[in-house]
Simulated scan of single mutants.
Amino acid sequence: MRWRYAFSEAIGACSVPVILADGLELPLEGVINWSRAVLQIPEALAGHPKALLAALPNSDEEILAMRRRVCDINRMYFATTRRRLDAVLLALAGSRSRGIK
């Protein structure tokens, strides 16, 4: 599925989502910069455990920084129903300004 409930749960828990899917569009990409808050790992690594583990950060500081960014994203866009609605409206307004219907 394009966006599973588990992703929302991970964000709510301030956990860094690890996504093993090529070409997956993350929710509210037009509003949220996910690049430093999630780990997107190429599907090609799925059958290579050592390479998969090597793709994960091993620095406590880097992991903590990513978790902080996830917490910020959760607080700003997902923590309440109102914030979720506002984020969706922002995304819709952005897509309209880019000519996307």
Rank of each mutant, 00 (worst) to 15 (best):
W3E: 06
P17C: 12
V38D: 06
L64S: 14
D86L: 12
I19Q: 03
E43S: 11
A21K: 13
R36G: 10
A6I: 13
G12W: 06
A13M: 15
V18E: 01
I100E: 13
I19W: 05
K50Y: 02
D22Q: 11
P49A: 04
R2K: 09
S8M: 09
A87Y: 06
S35W: 01
G47R: 11
L24F: 01
G94K: 07
L92Q: 11
E61Y: 10
R84P: 08
G23T: 02
W3S: 08
P27R: 12
E29V: 02
L85T: 14
R36T: 15
V70W: 03
R75N: 08
E61Q: 14
A65E: 12
P49C: 07
N33V: 13
Y77D: 02
G23M: 00
S8R: 10
M66V: 11
S97M: 06
V70G: 06
P57G: 10
I41T: 05
P17R: 08
G23K: 07
G94F: 00
S95K: 09
A44E: 14
S8L: 14
A65I: 03
A54Q: 14
I73K: 03
A93I: 05
A91W: 08
A46H: 06
V70Q: 04
I100V: 14
R4Q: 09
V16T: 04
K50Q: 08
R69Y: 00
A55N: 05
L45Q: 05
R2I: 12
A55V: 08
G30I: 10
Y5S: 03
R2M: 10
R82K: 15
A91Y: 13
S59H: 02
R82S: 10
W3V: 08
S97A: 12
I11N: 06
A51M: 03
P42T: 08
S8Y: 10
T81L: 13
R36K: 15
T80N: 07
I73Q: 06
L64Y: 08
L52H: 00
A54D: 13
P27W: 11
A10T: 04
W34N: 02
R75L: 07
Y5M: 07
L92A: 15
V31M: 04
E61W: 10
T80D: 04
S8A: 12
S97N: 06
A13S: 14
G23N: 13
R98M: 12
L53I: 02
A10E: 07
K50I: 01
A37N: 04
P17W: 11
T80W: 04
L28F: 14
A21Y: 08
L56D: 02
A93R: 13
R75S: 09
A10K: 07
L26W: 03
R83Y: 05
L56S: 01
N74T: 00
L45H: 02
L53H: 03
S95Y: 13
R96N: 00
Y77W: 02
D60R: 11
R96T: 06
A6H: 09
L26A: 04
A54G: 04
P27K: 08
V31Q: 05
A6W: 02
H48T: 09
R98K: 10
E43K: 07
L53K: 01
R2F: 14
L89A: 07
F7W: 09
L20D: 04
R2Q: 14
V88D: 03
P27L: 10
D72V: 04
Y77M: 00
T81M: 04
L53V: 03
A55K: 01
L90Q: 15
V31N: 03
E43D: 12
P17Y: 10
K50P: 00
M76W: 01
R4D: 11
L52K: 02
N74H: 15
A93S: 05
L28W: 06
